[in-house]
Amino acid sequence: MDYIQLAAIDKKVSRVGLGTWVMGGWMWGGANEQEAIETIVKAVEWGINIIDTAPIYGFGKAEEIVGKSLKLLGKSYPVVIATKFGLEWNERGEIRRNSSPARIRQEIEASLSRLKLSTIDLYQVHWPDEKVPFEETAYALLKLREEGKIRAIGVSNFSPKQMELFKRGAPLHTNQPPYNLFEREAEKDVLPYCREHGIATLCYGVLCRGLLTGKFNQNTTFPEGDLRRLDPKFQGANFSRYLEAVEKLKPIASHYGKSLAQFAAGWALGQPGVSIVLWGARHPNQIKEALGSTGWTISQEDLQQIELILTQTIPQPIGPEFMAPSKN
């Protein structure tokens, strides 16, 4: 496993991090808590030492699972915990953005309690909330940092313009954009901006919600409540085109002795401006596969072949916009 240094965090961090959205069960057809805990413990034992979570993942469930896992691991492993704030929900499961200072104060205490921590390594704004001035949100995080409740400050799904405004209130250490072989909007401005300004990136969705595992086919269906039932890429002719691209990418991955998932993560790690990729898993065998994502590179010839495949099979790529929560 390759490691990098993250600003404001006194530990080297693995370039593959464990994402825990699926562990919360919400929007992923449920999850098994014991398997999730085992996955986290094994990931850390195998050298993946950054775990990314959020309150909205299962409405607190994923953070609780991370907290239980940390208790099992004890102090023998230097784990970096990244969580988020800024999405609130009601009893009907309706979600809206709220990054007000009052909401931040409420969320930090709830997250610390669920995670069983006194300090969170990386605290991130989950989605930009334009109802609250970004510098006001940033300043509230700066105060938390001064109080020792957090170490590093991050954002997620922020544009360069939004990051500029945010930095008026506090230093910005990380951004978490969606990025994978099929969803590459971040290449236009987010990754270049972060690279230029020394902002580390934790790219989520590296396997494009399982599409880049190569395990789906035209007959694959998803249960009620599964996020992929809402994703246009998994529907009709779109699904066929993406599956065709997957089949054409598999031989290139095999050339490197890699599964398609490992190849997709390795490709992302080789792109300019990418610091860390987040690999979602709910079973130990899924995260074990992630260990083969670092320590190798893709040739220029094969990179060109990948671009040709994508251009020919997916002339009009579909982004991840469907995931954005309400701004109301």
Results as ranks from 00 to 15, higher is better:
112 L>M: 05
88 E>C: 13
114 R>W: 08
101 P>E: 09
97 R>N: 11
95 I>S: 10
93 G>W: 04
116 K>G: 13
114 R>Q: 07
93 G>F: 04
120 I>K: 07
111 S>C: 05
88 E>V: 15
119 T>R: 07
107 E>Q: 14
89 W>R: 12
112 L>D: 06
92 R>L: 14
88 E>R: 15
106 Q>S: 15
101 P>T: 00
98 N>Q: 13
93 G>C: 06
120 I>F: 01
121 D>H: 01
106 Q>E: 15
109 E>I: 02
115 L>A: 00
122 L>E: 07
118 S>G: 04
91 E>W: 10
102 A>P: 03
98 N>V: 11
94 E>R: 14
116 K>I: 02
117 L>V: 01
106 Q>R: 14
102 A>D: 15
100 S>H: 10
95 I>G: 09
111 S>I: 00
92 R>G: 13
118 S>T: 06
111 S>V: 01
122 L>W: 01
111 S>F: 04
122 L>D: 00
96 R>A: 12
98 N>C: 13
100 S>L: 10
112 L>Y: 07
104 I>P: 03
102 A>C: 07
125 V>M: 08
97 R>Q: 14
98 N>D: 15
114 R>H: 09
87 L>N: 09
96 R>T: 14
117 L>H: 02
106 Q>N: 15
124 Q>K: 06
104 I>V: 14
108 I>Q: 06
101 P>N: 10
90 N>Q: 11
89 W>P: 15
88 E>N: 14
90 N>C: 10
113 S>E: 09
90 N>W: 09
115 L>E: 03
111 S>P: 04
120 I>C: 03
108 I>N: 01
112 L>Q: 05
121 D>G: 00
116 K>F: 02
113 S>W: 00
105 R>F: 00
107 E>V: 10
125 V>D: 01
125 V>C: 08
92 R>K: 15
93 G>E: 09
116 K>Y: 09
88 E>L: 12
100 S>Q: 12
106 Q>G: 14
124 Q>M: 11
112 L>F: 03
110 A>S: 13
123 Y>A: 06
123 Y>N: 04
110 A>M: 10
114 R>V: 07
116 K>A: 13
122 L>K: 05
124 Q>E: 11
87 L>A: 07
115 L>H: 03
122 L>P: 02
114 R>L: 08
92 R>V: 01
104 I>R: 07
97 R>G: 08
103 R>W: 08
117 L>G: 04
90 N>T: 07
114 R>Y: 10
90 N>R: 12
118 S>N: 10
91 E>R: 12
103 R>H: 14
121 D>N: 03
89 W>Y: 14
90 N>F: 09
118 S>W: 00
117 L>T: 02
92 R>H: 15
121 D>S: 02
117 L>N: 00
102 A>G: 13
124 Q>H: 06
